[in-house]
Design a protein around this nucleic acid. Structure first.
Lengths: 196, 196
DNA sequence: CCAGCTGGCTAACATCGTTAGCCTTACGCT
DNA sequence: AGCGTAAGGCTAACGATGTTAGCCAGCTGG
């Protein structure tokens, strides 16, 4: 039985699968080693520390989220792109809660950290969604933060079982998307005065 | 020098102050004991475990968030209530990131968990904000989840230093509030068809 | 053929959370 | 007044977990 040769990347991939099952907080070197059929200290031949491992998961997660959104909005624009992109992000979080949590917990370790371009790609995808709405350039950054906050907030609350009331979460999410879509379309037309 | 007598509540309060400084993930029994001028095992005279401690912080946080929003919307309605309530919540998260993180990580331990009414009070405050907009009752739950997701998402991203681009975060938040306000007002008038 | 790197392993250590058991002090009850 | 008891501190010790050190087998290239 030739075991697949372990690499830092493959170890991180296995760890990502693990945290999706047991939760990011419950990541442990022992558990991961067991999954891989090796003893705990052997992990350190591939990864320098648990923090390093968590960081690799985070990069993986950001990359995957970015890809998921990008793929989802391929060939779509305007409202369709928004709906597809937001659903893709939410679906990713639901299917990979541990990875996504790792992505949120991570912070860049330096200027060359691949985590930085990975997160930038996510933001670029969101920006691409917004490009379908003809927004005032000054407002695009605010719109992006709003969109990101809403989808991120919804997805994390959902992942944390935060929606207790017995009402369809799916329906709420499409409502949210619709709400944002209408607001963006209106904002493009009538302008959005942020000074109240 | 009569030290203030320790109680489970006062220990939780001290722990809450601690996590706001060092981050919820960095909560440790040793650190807390040091703050209180006692040795680590003595903590167990007041708190049954670290999980218990975290849970108490969570209840404290939810209670405080609920109070903060309720106080902020006192005497206001409509757009004013929305702006005040959302700002209050955001401010709370910014000033008490550790507590708030504890509140999010917590899950009810049983049907009598005081954590449940505490979170319900937060939702009730959000609901009170929405009552100023004449929404279709069927949509109110969706609007509440949307509002909660947006503010929660924004505040947590901000607390995690998630907004990298050099643009005013304050401005973005007022933009978000305005965006939601306009959407809610429009939705009350023209209706919001969640089926696309 | 052998030198050396790769990647496993065992042993050992530090740090935490946690439990057990002791001891002092304050307080209430007779 | 005195004594029993509970509160609340402490030290010692254990288990789990992250981490390091050091050893060794085997493949691989010269």
């Amino acid at each position: 039985m030739p075991k697949a040769r372990l690499t830092p990347a493959s170890v991180a991939e296995a760890a990502a699968a693990l945290v999706d099952e047991v939760g990011f907080d419950n990541l442990s070197m022992g558990l991961l080693a067991e999954r891989l059929g090796i003893k705990t200290p052997s992990l350190y031949k591939h990864v320098t520390s648990q923090a390093d491992l968590a960081h690799r998961i985070a990069i993986l997660a950001m990359t995957e989220v970015g890809d998921a959104i990008r793929d989802a909005i391929q060939g779509r624009s305007g409202s369709d792109a928004l709906a597809a992109g937001a659903q893709a992000m939410r679906t990713y979080v639901r299917e990979h809660p541990g990875r996504y949590a790792a992505g949120n917990a991570a912070r860049p370790t330096g200027p060359d950290d691949p985590f930085i371009p990975a997160t930038e790609r996510v933001l670029a995808s969101l920006s691409a969604i917004l490009s379908g709405y003809r927004l005032d350039p000054d407002q695009e950054i605010h719109a992006m933060r709003t969109l990101r906050s809403a989808v991120h907030g919804f997805a994390t609350l959902e992942a944390a079982d935060g929606f207790q009331i017995d009402a369809s979460v799916d329906e709420s999410f499409t409502w949210l998307i619709n709400f944002i879509d209408q607001g963006l379309r209106a904002g493009a037309t009538i302008g959005n005065d942020s000074a109240r």
